[in-house]
């Protein structure tokens, strides 16, 4: 696989605050790379640096081998992207907007028609953008980013405002672009379920630091498969939690009518039984014991970020 984007030791401060700290990763042609992080973790800032909207303080970014700082025009030639919301000249039609960009990029009419077809905007492309819905603007944004056949496509929360059918379509478009045309697609989103379906690899960024970069399957497995969580519905959750923590259980959460306990999956049955015993001996009525289900990327993500103290916006 060719390395398309290579980031090394990227550091960025805005004012006195360090937003990004020593970020390094690579993306390759033919894969969809998910960029995950809670609000304020530095996703958008990273993307802004990649597309040249922000200047980097330290480190290097190279795109298709061109250094972003030293050879901006050549580097940026290979990048297409949407940052934050897709914004257009509202008084121009969708087509005119595309044409504006196509001209600078040196792209012909055929390619404009092609990308319009790709995002399925043919019927409304001659309407003014002021009449577009957010979803249509998202599509137009994707079309615009694809105009010049970039090697690196960066989309900041591209599924915002799209209906479920639109999300599925976009997902197909993006995976298709990556796998068929060998483009490196970088997607940031907090639609975690989407990411799981769409991405090949995921980088998790928390408080300006890149925590991990790994294939999505590994990420889910790494956290989800060695731990399990049981829900004990009891009459006195507070007291139950107290008993459990006295007996060495660390990951205990209290809800209105239950305690949730997280422990190693390896000895699931024994530990469940042990907890039950402890509770019963502690004179607590246990009504129900259940698996906490749907423990997928979302939880993994929360787990990952919160464990690092990343729940605080920095």
């Amino acid at each position: 696989m060719d390395t398309i984007l290579k980031i090394e030791h990227l550091t960025k401060s805005l004012g006195k605050r360090e937003i990004l700290h020593d970020i390094s990763f690579e993306t390759y042609g033919g894969e969809v790379f998910g960029f995950l992080g809670p609000n304020g973790a530095g996703k958008t800032t990273t993307i802004k640096v990649l597309v040249g909207l922000l200047l980097l303080d330290q480190g290097t970014v190279s795109i298709c081998g061109y250094d972003l700082k030293k050879d901006f025009e050549n580097a940026i030639k290979n990048v297409g992207g949407i940052v934050e919301n897709p914004e257009f000249y509202k008084y121009l039609s969708g087509y005119e907007n595309l044409r504006q960009y196509a001209k600078i990029q040196g792209v012909g009419e055929d390619r404009i028609r092609e990308v319009i077809h790709l995002v399925g905007l043919e019927n409304r492309i001659n309407d003014k953008v002021s009449k577009y819905s957010l979803g249509m603007r998202q599509r137009l944004g994707v079309a615009l980013s694809l105009l010049h056949r970039p090697k690196l496509l960066i989309l900041d929360e591209p599924t915002n405002g799209l209906d479920p059918a639109g999300i599925k379509e976009l997902r197909d478009i993006l995976t298709n672009l990556a796998h068929e045309e060998n483009i490196s697609v970088v997607v940031s989103s907090h639609q975690m379920s989407e990411m799981e379906l769409m991405c090949d690899r995921v980088g998790v960024i928390v408080a300006g630091e890149l925590k991990s970069v790994q294939p999505i399957s590994e990420l889910v497995a790494s956290v989800a498969h060695d731990k399990c969580e049981k829900i004990f519905r009891v009459d006195a959750p507070e007291r139950a939690a107290q008993i459990l923590s006295e007996n060495g259980f660390e990951d205990v959460t209290v809800t209105e009518n239950s305690v949730n306990v997280l422990f190693d999956k390896a000895s699931e049955d024994e530990i469940t039984a042990k907890i039950n015993r402890l509770l019963v001996h502690g004179d607590i009525s246990v009504f129900n014991i259940a698996d906490k289900e749907n423990r997928r990327l979302e939880d993994v993500f929360i787990e990952l970020t919160q464990r690092e103290g990343g729940d605080q916006i920095v």
Binding site: V51, E73, G80, G81, E84, N85, E87, F88, Y89, K90
Partner: peptide
């Protein structure tokens, strides 16, 4: 104001 500056500076033009 319209945010379109992002597309302008995203193009391979100084």
């Amino acid at each position: 104001t319209s945010g379109t500056i992002k597309f302008l500076v995203l193009s391979p033009v100084k």
